[in-house]
Design a protein around this nucleic acid. Structure first.
Length: 777
DNA sequence: TGGAAAAGGTCAACCC
DNA sequence: GGGTTGACCTTTTCCA
């Protein structure tokens, strides 16, 4: 469009100027409809530039920043959010003339709204955002502009955008294919396209999963993995393409050679010089700092920046108070700040983060490598971390090793955004400005060396988890801490967990559950359930059966935990045992609930095709136990959970952070919350209309679970799980998913094995005996 | 086919 | 000196 002073140039006779009104993003004068919204040139350009990098935008002020003509450059995250809320998207692109009918309609509406504006302007109040004009513009949505200051709104909007963005990429790819076919046919050259247009730069194809959600769970799981692979491949491709077209990721180009972590050459003096102190004062960031921080996130290393050291020194000199505030709000004292700047080539005001408690393990790793290094004590770390949950800063040997050309002091205990890159991709020369960092301890050689972001890390973790390769606990802690920052990745991980748990549950419980259900349904439909169930076994025999089932249950819980819960095996053995020991009855309860029919008070064992009445069970089980179990079963049944949901509930009950004797409660809480998220996602997918109500009931149920804990403590706790690894119970960590644990030879446990083998069968027997009511047998 | 409208490109101004 | 912004320009697309 021809412009003059930012305004459309009036045309000759017959020309109808289009009323674009105000920019739907910043309320400046709109110059046209760009990417689906009426915006100014600035917001158009901003949206265009932001497409490849918008995921790095973060608002530190609750996504509520004002986005006006004068303030729009203060917060990229909020500006982009408003772009999305205004409807900007690649698939909203419209080319060509505006149809006459639309134009005329808009003119009429525009006149009306301007009339209202005039009236409004005569009133007392004015607004920076002219929502009336916005509303008058075609395709605009004043409601969406006014709403959505919350995190949720932002997430939703950006998710929607991502979905739309991906669709548009697919559409463009299709169009391009068609075009290519046409060009090939016509003998013309194929026009060049950017990676964005070619579809190489894509978001996680979660939608693909949703489309096929009717498939069996394990199929979905396999698709998810291939999706993760594909995503990582495409992201790599996109990055390489950006590099090849000379985009601003020049920093990557310089660092193709691997960086070894062993090249630590600091002298004791240098180490001494780098000692630092920690101050636990939390400081509020200024808006400028925030803007700087966001800029730094969106900025990628630039190859031309050659005098970083000099610049840094100048900055340090300006830091006359010998302290600085890191971008996550912590005040650090010199010489740490100075060392950080000169050593790592980083402006710590922008890039530095402080270690989390979760990184203490890593600190320990590094401490072994650099014994002379003075590290903050745990108490100091706790003080630093008292009010922070998001900080991520890690002692980074790779970073240190990469800076051989310049003295690096040990206080490079800093790092960046939780973005994972390969060691050999960390910009290492003095020319490099470090925009991304990976804690080397999180990316051990041969471990996660391909990880350049959370997506590829997720892919690696999934692959290692499935291969049965142990994953270091601190890696899982970091991952579980960080992945929720990306809503699409979070959704994918929830989907993955849902699939894995469903698959593990199917392998362990599926056959028995189906057989039980078939038997129960046939019996109920044919009315063959006897009014008084006649026992086919004596109470003594029944005790043995129950003992057997309890021991089998232990094995099942172990299998379910190890095969289905990402991160479970990363817990310490003691914590694993504590969780398993305390959850056996819970898992049995959830599994058996549908066969504990309160209205009839019977339990069904398909093996013997028998209904056992509650009355009869009272002969060898305590009233207290039976009442509790049947009540809990009734509550679980009332929720009408699916097989998948029941499976997730089992894992949630296994990984409970409030179990006694746990050491790494923080880690267990992260896994627990992830499993809860997965269950929420599953429920909301299956029953979107009643998911909130159902989740409320479910949380109530979990709160009331304490009563079963008492039973558990009384009857099951004495089982010595520490011997599991020695006996015939040992879980095969490398087991194949194709083998059904429920039917494998190892699974066929006998009472003799139990009594003579790993689990203390006598103890189980004794406790079961103690559960007997006096003389009732 | 002309012209309107939007995408993409360019580069001076500005900021750090 | 380098990164970001946004006004302006060119190219592409599509309505009349």
């Amino acid at each position: 469009m021809e412009m003059e002073n930012g305004m459309p140039i009036p045309r000759g006779r017959g020309f109808t100027p289009f009323p674009f009104g105000r920019c739907q993003v910043c309320a400046a004068e709109a110059t046209g409809n760009h990417y689906g919204a009426n915006t100014c040139e600035g917001c158009k350009g901003f949206f265009k530039r932001s497409l490849p990098v918008f995921r790095t935008f973060r608002c530190f002020f609750g996504n509520k920043c004002d986005v006006g003509p004068d303030t729009r450059n203060r917060c990229k995250a909020c500006r982009f959010r408003k772009c999305v809320e205004a409807g900007m998207a690649l698939d909203a692109v419209k080319m060509g003339r505006i149809p006459k009918a639309v134009k005329e309609q808009a003119l009429v509406t525009g006149k009306k709204s301007r009339g209202r504006d005039k009236q409004a302007s005569n009133g007392a109040s004015t607004s920076t955002t002219n929502t009336d004009e916005v509303a008058s513009s075609p395709g605009s949505d004043a409601g969406s502009l006014q709403s959505g200051s919350t995190d949720t709104a932002m997430t939703t909007s950006i998710d929607e955008f991502r979905g739309a963005f991906e669709k548009s990429l697919e559409k463009q790819a299709q169009q391009q294919q068609q075009q290519q076919a046409r060009y090939v046919g016509g003998g013309k050259d194929v026009p060049s396209t950017s990676p964005l247009q070619s579809g190489a730069y894509r978001f996680h194809p979660y939608n693909t999963e949703v489309k096929h959600s009717h498939q069996p769970a394990f199929k979905a799981s396999e698709r998810l993995h291939s999706s993760l692979d594909e995503t990582s491949r495409q992201m790599s491709l996109a990055q390489s393409q950006y590099r090849s077209i000379g985009d601003n990721v020049g920093g990557y180009q310089q660092h193709q050679q691997p960086v070894t972590t062993g090249a630590l050459t600091e002298t004791a003096t240098e180490i001494e010089a780098g000692r630092h102190t920690w101050q636990s004062t939390s400081c509020q960031l200024s808006h400028d700092d925030q803007t700087q921080t966001m800029s730094s996130h969106s900025q990628t290393p630039h190859k031309g920046q050659s005098d970083q050291q000099g610049t840094s020194s100048k900055r340090s000199d300006e830091n006359s108070h010998n302290t600085f505030t890191s971008s996550n709000g912590w005040m650090l004292q010199m010489p740490f700040a100075r060392a950080a700047e000169s050593g790592a080539g980083i402006n710590p005001k922008k890039n530095c983060r402080i270690l989390t408690l979760a990184d203490m393990a890593i600190t320990g790793d590094v401490n072994e490598n650099i014994p002379d290094m003075q590290l903050p004590t745990e108490d100091q770390m706790k003080a630093v971390m008292a009010n922070s949950k998001t900080a991520v800063a890690v002692m980074n040997p790779a970073l240190r090793g990469g800076h051989q050309s310049m003295p690096v002091v040990p206080s490079d205990v800093l790092v960046f955004r939780p973005t994972y890159v390969r060691d050999d991709q960390i910009p290492v020369s003095s020319a490099g400005r470090i925009g991304y960092g990976v804690p080397s301890a999180l990316a051990p050689a041969g471990g996660f060396s391909g990880c350049r972001d959370l997506y590829s890390l997720a892919r690696s973790l999934v692959a290692q988890f499935q291969a049965g390769i142990p994953i270091p606990g601190h890696v899982m802690i970091d991952f579980y801490s960080m992945y929720p920052t990306d809503s699409r990745l979070k959704a994918s991980m929830c989907e993955f967990t849902k699939c894995m748990v469903a698959r593990g549950n199917e392998e362990i419980y599926g056959e028995e559950t189906r057989a039980n259900e078939v038997f129960m349904n046939e019996a109920m439909s044919s009315g063959k359930i006897p009014k008084t169930c006649v026992p086919e076994r004596t109470p003594q025999e029944m005790r043995d059966v129950l003992k057997d089932r309890l021991i089998t249950q232990v094995k099942r819980v172990v299998l379910l935990s190890e095969s289905s819960i990402l991160g479970f095996r990363s817990l310490s053995i003691d914590d694993q045992h504590s969780l398993l020991r305390t959850s056996i009855l819970d898992v049995w309860m959830v599994h058996s609930s549908r066969f504990l029919r309160d209205e009839k008070s019977y339990i069904i064992f398909h093996e013997t095709k028998t209904f056992y009445s509650r009355e009869w069970m009272e002969m060898f089980l305590t009233d207290e136990f039976l009442i509790t179990v049947f009540e809990m079963a009734a509550k679980i049944n009332a929720l009408q959970l699916s097989f998948e949901e029941l499976a997730l509930l089992k894992t949630i009950l296994i990984v409970r952070p409030d179990r006694p004797g746990l050491v790494n409660v923080e880690f267990i809480t992260l896994i627990h919350n992830h499993l809860l998220d997965a269950l929420k996602v599953t429920i909301s997918q299956r029953r979107p209309d009643e998911s909130e109500q159902l989740l409320g009931k479910l949380l109530e149920l979990l709160k009331g679970w304490r009563i079963l804990d008492v039973m558990q403590e009384r009857y099951v706790h004495p089982i010595d799980l520490s011997q599991l690894s020695k006996g015939p119970w040992k879980v095969d960590n490398q087991r194949s998913h194709s083998a059904s644990p429920a039917t494998s030879a190892k699974e066929k446990l006998t009472i003799d094995e139990a009594n003579n083998g790993g689990v203390d069968g006598k103890m189980v027997s004794a406790r079961l005996s103690s559960a007997s009511v006096n003389g009732k047998e």
